[in-house]
């Protein structure tokens, strides 16, 4: 399975990097930009008997290591192949 994981800062937690990028975009003249959040994009290959089994495994990976639930949110996609 091909897995992609997206980790971003949790809503309500101040994201100083997001703020800096937002300010830089405004300085470049891109108006109307708000709520910028930076995150991590993780791709991995996983041997799993089924999509459901892979989803269960990736959920655990995210909870235990790939994201810190105190400050981050995550979502992921699992595709055969």
């Amino acid at each position: 399975m091909r897995v992609t994981v997206y980790v971003t800062s949790r809503r309500g937690i101040l994201d100083p990097e997001g703020r800096a990028v937002e300010a830089a975009l405004a300085n470049l003249g891109f108006n109307g930009v708000s709520d910028v959040h930076l995150g991590r994009y993780i791709v991995l290959a996983l041997d799993a008997p089924s999509k459901a089994a892979a989803q269960e495994t990736v959920q655990k990976m995210c909870e235990q290591l790939l994201a810190n639930p105190i400050i981050e949110e995550f979502r992921f996609e699992v595709e055969p192949g």
Binding site: P16, E17, N68, I71
Partner: peptide, 16 residues
């Protein structure tokens, strides 16, 4: 903090 032996988390300094 990561090991949950202490509460909370440490993030990037606000000044970056």
């Amino acid at each position: 903090c990561e090991a949950h032996l202490l509460p909370g988390a440490l993030m990037r300094n606000r000044s970056l």
